[in-house]
């Protein structure tokens, strides 16, 4: 009968159409899979050939600056003889609020080029004053060369910064 060749043709046509549709579907699925971007991920699939979109030129470095620190001192200090209690004004300026603590050390210069520590403070916050100190020992009447050494500390991590040494004449009378 003449229907057999037609049926065969129809079957073949249907098969071709189905195969074509299947191929198209696979291609579409493949494209969709390649284009799929998991959360936090990239479109680049590791191991496949292609340029990583996250690659960029080397970043230039940037200088990181600490904010300036303000330090206060004086050039002359008069103290009474034969007593280790001294009136003074050591302070951390208010400009350092929120940025720097500081410590103070009073150093008596010695003839050998070194020094003897007369007093060391604890940390002093910005805006705070120390009005009286106790020396390691009293001094006899006379004039002495000394240094007020001021060391700031970053509040953020308690690291030390550049520091200041103020030359002082100690007048004991």
């Amino acid at each position: 009968m003449s229907n057999n060749p037609t049926k065969t043709k129809k079957a073949l046509t249907a098969a071709v159409v189905l195969l074509t549709l299947s191929l198209i579907l696979n291609i579409v699925l493949l494209i969709l899979l390649i284009g799929y971007k998991p959360e936090g991920g990239t479109t680049y699939q590791p191991g496949s050939i292609g340029f990583d979109p996250d690659a960029s030129d080397k970043r230039p470095g940037t200088v990181t600056q600490m904010q300036n620190v303000t330090v206060a001192g004086f050039s002359k200090l008069t103290i009474p003889p034969d007593t280790d209690t001294v009136a003074i004004d050591l302070y951390n300026p208010e400009e350092n609020f929120g940025l720097y603590y500081m410590t103070f050390e009073l150093r008596l210069l010695t003839d050998d080029g070194g020094y003897e520590t007369l007093y060391t403070s604890g940390l002093v916050g910005a805006g705070k004053h120390i009005y009286q100190i106790t020396l390691s020992h009293a001094l006899a009447a006379g004039e002495y060369s000394a240094v007020l050494f001021i060391q700031p500390y970053r509040m953020a991590d308690m690291s030390t910064t550049n520091n200041v040494a103020g030359n002082i004449t100690l007048i004991v009378k």
């Binding site: 600490m66 300036n68 303000t70 050039s75 910064t161």
Partner: peptide, 15 residues
């Protein structure tokens, strides 16, 4: 009362 105040660069990270 005599005295002085100075402002200095506290520090930096160089490039």
């Amino acid at each position: 009362e005599g005295g002085w105040e100075v402002e200095i660069g506290a520090g930096m990270t160089l490039v």
